[in-house]
Design a binder for these strands. Sequence first.
DNA 1: ACCTGAACACCGTTCAAGT
DNA 2: ACCTGAACACCGTTCAAGT
Lengths: 193, 193
Amino acid sequence: LTEPQIVEAALELSGGAWLDDISMRALAAQLGVPVMTLYNYVPSKDALHGLVLDHVLRPVRVPSPDEGPWEERIRQLERDARQAMGRVPGLLLIRHGLESSEAARLADGVLSILAGGGFTPDEAALASAALYAVILGQLEIEAIATVTGAPVEASFETATLNRSREELFDFGLDAVIEGLKATLAKKPPRRRR
Amino acid sequence: LTEPQIVEAALELSGGAWLDDISMRALAAQLGVPVMTLYNYVPSKDALHGLVLDHVLRPVRVPSPDEGPWEERIRQLERDARQAMGRVPGLLLIRHGLESSEAARLADGVLSILAGGGFTPDEAALASAALYAVILGQLEIEAIATVTGAPVEASFETATLNRSREELFDFGLDAVIEGLKATLAKKPPRRRR
DNA sequence: ACCTGAACACCGTTCAAGT
DNA sequence: ACCTGAACACCGTTCAAGT
């Protein structure tokens, strides 16, 4: 019985819905062990969520500087991250984003990409928060759809009905990136020293 | 004992943290009634969350067309909504955004503002989803900060440390709006008939 | 040392009995 | 009709006893 085994079992058991809804008892049953055995590998249910978050975020790469302009690298990273987290829409990353070392790695990646793109550290921080908000918000919208079985954003009438999640996400992401570019364009061109 | 009384008690008891963490038992104690009495007014704990969401969203106005250009009206509505929901960062609006008639009212308001701004229904739907994502994401970031006591976005290093939530939100919101305007600008100017 | 059963201190909600 | 106590079917986790 290993940690990855437990994480995988939790993922399978949640079936893409609210991770929080699976109980330690059900997880133990799935693995065929007594409940308390889990606590030899995981300190708490809360910590388990952190492990799951790390697990799904681990494969997401931070593109290196030679992989295109900063917009393209941001887009790639955010798309990958969204897709990875799409495995567990009800992850409640809310509560664990700050504890996850993988989430921190990606946040740092975004910051350095933005810095390389010409943003000051200050602007980069603001911009990365905006990008973070977009991905979190989109995941929430998807979580609603997955868990309730409703189409993506029913309240937005029929227009969104036939749109894929990718389309929705890309539109929002592109809008933010476009806005960030506009911010950059207003500044005098950066000087290299 | 009235429904608003129950909602207010829930708000007070949660103290701005995760609403889900308060128990029906604690809520009943706060109101000085037996637990089961609550069920004469609220069908379930889940429904209570919906009532709280409606309650905090009710005062948020949809600006009328004569209150400035569409960007300004969107900004005003979103700012108001963010502030209203800031009362209960841990509202888990995730689960109830679709059930709340007040959330639906605001979503419709955003759609009609965008339509008036020159977006096709299709574009307006995409744009409103993007705006929805931004506010949801920002609220999540704030919820993390409130509940964990950490500064807003600790992983973004010191740059964000001294920024108010309003600054963060406005930056993200402005970026999206800027991006949406760019989308509009690329189109031929709309014709009135 | 590692494992785990029983127990503790909770939950939300059903249901039947009270007035 | 309206109200509510007791009970049901769960929780996560502690803790002490097992090997």
